[in-house]
């Protein structure tokens, strides 16, 4: 049976400007889906999320996957990644004046 795990890394935090989810290690996993759910209606324009990976959890590079962040309450968006090594996070960028209260969850399979 393949191993699977869901991790909640950012919960009920309001993001604006440039924001990041907390670093998460999952070297055991071969694939990941990163979900972002809007817990409240977004304010201002829509943001965008960029998946980032890292060799050490401190220095980050864009993995190449980007996806729009939700704007309405309970809307969900996601990105899929594989072959990411060990450390993962998302970087979120918002237009000036925009903000979003998010639930960021990572879902892994070996």
């Amino acid at each position: 049976m393949r191993m699977s795990n869901s991790a909640v890394v950012t919960r009920n935090i309001t993001w604006s400007g440039l924001a990041h989810s907390e670093p998460y290690e999952a070297g055991w996993a071969g694939e990941a889906v990163i979900f972002v759910r809007a817990l409240k209606p977004g304010i201002g324009g829509a943001g965008i999320a960029h998946v980032e990976m890292s060799a050490d959890g401190m220095n980050w590079a864009r993995e190449g996957t980007s996806f729009p962040l939700p704007t309405s309450e309970n809307e969900v968006t996601f990105g899929r990644v594989s072959h990411f090594g060990n450390w993962l996070r998302i970087a979120a960028e918002f237009p000036e004046g925009a903000s979003l209260t998010v639930l960021v969850t990572l879902h892994f399979k070996s």
């Binding site: 795990n5 869901s6 919960r11 009920n12 999952a26 070297g27 055991w28 817990l39 050490d56």
Partner: peptide, 30 residues
């Protein structure tokens, strides 16, 4: 360890709101 809530996550005490999921680590260092 998630904090208790009812109706809204805003009800969670700040001490619990900061918690996040554990991970499996190989203690990887730069």
């Amino acid at each position: 360890l998630v904090g208790n809530y009812e109706d809204s996550l805003d009800a969670m005490l700040p001490g619990y709101a900061q918690h996040s999921s554990p991970m499996l680590s190989t203690l990887s260092h730069w």
